[in-house]
Amino acid sequence: MSGQPADGPPAGEPDGRRRPGRRPGSADTRGQILAAARETFAEKGFDKATVRGIARQAGVDPALVHHYFASKEGMFVAAMELPVEPESLIPMIVSGPREEVGERLTRFVLTMTSAAEARQPVLALARTAMTNDRMAAMIREFVTHAILNRVAEALQIPPIRTEAAFAQLFGVVLMRYVVKLEPLASVDVEELVELLAPTIQRYLDDSG
């Protein structure tokens, strides 16, 4: 005896049909989720996109999305191929001596973007945002809510200060790698850190 009725469905499938819900994980499941995420973020923006909506677009259970990605922010970073997640960036900025926060942020941004593989996705998004209002809104929502506001809250400063700091550093990155303005384009990272960190510190300091 096999323990299964001869005329019954296979064990675990009471009605003989595949159960709806979570799609079994496969080599391509993560890719399907990321494709759905890119489409959903582009259509709805970062704020209005939801894990449930992305899961529905990908045809998987939301629990499977959480299996691959810890948060919506993490999924956005992976979908857009960004080089760093807010969960690692923000603690790096706000931890340590307050008087060195400008130096930490400046060194991180300039060191990270010195690597072409980290820099290229960021610059590609920036170029697209310059000509695509929907993409600009999506990036603005992500940067504002996932990074800038959280840094401002952690440092207990007005958001305009974090916006000014990041804007100046991003402008330096654009001049260095897109416009290739000399000698800015070829100067050593540490020399730039020494030059820029005091100004970035002033933006992020709550005393001035």
Score class of each variant (00 low, 15 high):
Met1Ile: 05
Met1Asp: 15
Gln4Asn: 11
Pro5Phe: 09
Ala6Leu: 12
Asp7Tyr: 07
Pro9Ser: 10
Pro10Tyr: 07
Pro10Gln: 10
Gly12Glu: 13
Asp15Arg: 05
Arg17Lys: 09
Pro20Met: 05
Pro24Leu: 10
Gly25Ser: 09
Gly31Cys: 01
Gln32Asp: 15
Ile33Glu: 08
Leu34Met: 07
Ala35Val: 03
Ala36Phe: 03
Ala37Arg: 02
Ala37Leu: 04
Thr40Cys: 10
Phe41Gly: 02
Lys44Cys: 11
Lys48Ala: 08
Ala49Pro: 11
Ala49Ser: 15
Arg52Lys: 12
Arg52Gln: 12
Ile54Lys: 08
Ile54Asp: 15
Gln57Asn: 09
Val60Cys: 08
Asp61Lys: 05
Val65Phe: 09
Ser71Asn: 03
Glu73Val: 00
Glu73Lys: 01
Gly74Thr: 01
Met75Asp: 05
Phe76Asn: 02
Ala78Phe: 00
Leu82Met: 15
Val84Ser: 00
Glu87Pro: 00
Leu89Trp: 13
Leu89Glu: 11
Ile90Trp: 04
Met92Leu: 13
Met92Glu: 15
Val94Tyr: 01
Val94Ala: 01
Ser95Glu: 15
Pro97Thr: 06
Glu103Tyr: 09
Arg104Ile: 03
Arg107Thr: 05
Phe108Thr: 04
Phe108Leu: 12
Leu110Gly: 02
Met112Pro: 01
Ala115Asp: 15
Ala116Trp: 08
Glu117Gln: 10
Arg119His: 13
Val122Pro: 01
Leu123Phe: 08
Ala126Asp: 12
Arg127His: 14
Arg127Cys: 02
Ala129Gly: 11
Met130Asn: 13
Met130Gly: 14
Met130Val: 02
Thr131Glu: 15
Thr131Asp: 15
Asn132Arg: 08
Ala137Pro: 00
Met138Val: 05
Arg140Asp: 14
Glu141Asn: 05
Phe142Tyr: 15
Thr144Phe: 00
Ile147Ala: 02
Asn149Trp: 05
Arg150Leu: 08
Val151Leu: 07
Ala152Phe: 03
Glu153Cys: 02
Pro159Lys: 06
Pro159Gln: 09
Arg161Trp: 02
Arg161Leu: 03
Arg161Thr: 04
Thr162Ala: 11
Leu169Trp: 06
Gly171Trp: 13
Gly171Glu: 15
Val173Lys: 05
Val173Phe: 09
Arg176Lys: 14
Val178Met: 14
Val179Arg: 13
Leu181Val: 05
Glu182Ala: 06
Pro183Phe: 14
Leu184Cys: 08
Ala185Glu: 13
Ser186Phe: 05
Val189Glu: 15
Glu194Ala: 09
Leu195Val: 04
Leu196Ser: 05
Leu196Phe: 10
Pro198Ile: 10
Gln201Pro: 10
Tyr203Ser: 03
Leu204Ser: 04
Asp205Thr: 04
Asp206His: 08
